[in-house]
Design a protein around this nucleic acid. Structure first.
Length: 153
DNA sequence: GCCAACGTTGGC
DNA sequence: GCCAACGTTGGC
């Protein structure tokens, strides 16, 4: 089982929204970055654990945990003309973008802020600490445990 | 709302 | 295939 971090803008889709969704589950659609796509399509497996991170908002940081409940399949919004995520170059035979399903698991006792993550020297690998545009990123077991410990303080 | 970082596009 | 221009992300 591997660990991941997914970013979301809470104004668009928050941890609360996930918790209140049918079956507390959502399709994680709309990822349009190749590096993130490759993680989704090639590496993220059923049962993997996901930290949900709120970006572009007042309280930026990790807020909760979700579980991957369906492995990668084509993102249907790429074929939908009415969607913001429509991609004219994607075909059903050769999809360009993929999704997984994630299910709410838990809320952290407290938000682990980006600031506190950056300030923690024990978090050594997390991509967030450096350049931050990637919306889906791997998390090492050590970094995962560090963040969970920070949430428990 | 600003702006730095960085990904993507397109001309050559 | 390079790289400048442009667009987007995301923290502040």
């Amino acid at each position: 089982m591997a660990y991941w971090l997914f970013k979301t803008e809470p104004d668009a889709f928050s941890l609360d929204d996930l918790q209140q969704a049918p079956q507390q589950t959502t399709v994680w659609e709309g990822v349009r970055n190749y590096q993130a796509r490759n993680f989704i399509r090639d590496e993220i497996k059923l049962g993997d654990q996901v930290m949900i991170y709120h970006s572009s908002c007042k309280h930026v940081g990790v807020v909760g945990i979700a579980t991957v409940t369906k492995a990668a399949y084509p993102d249907l919004t790429q074929f939908d003309l009415s969607s913001d995520y429509y991609d004219a170059k994607a075909t059903h035979d050769n999809p360009r973008w993929y999704v997984v399903d994630v299910t709410y698991q838990s809320r952290l006792n407290k938000l682990v802020s980006l600031k506190s993550i950056k300030a923690n020297p024990a978090i050594t690998e997390l991509v967030l600490k450096k350049a931050g545009r990637l919306s889906v990123m791997p998390v090492t077991a050590n970094d995962w445990q560090q963040i969970m410990a920070m949430a428990a303080d």
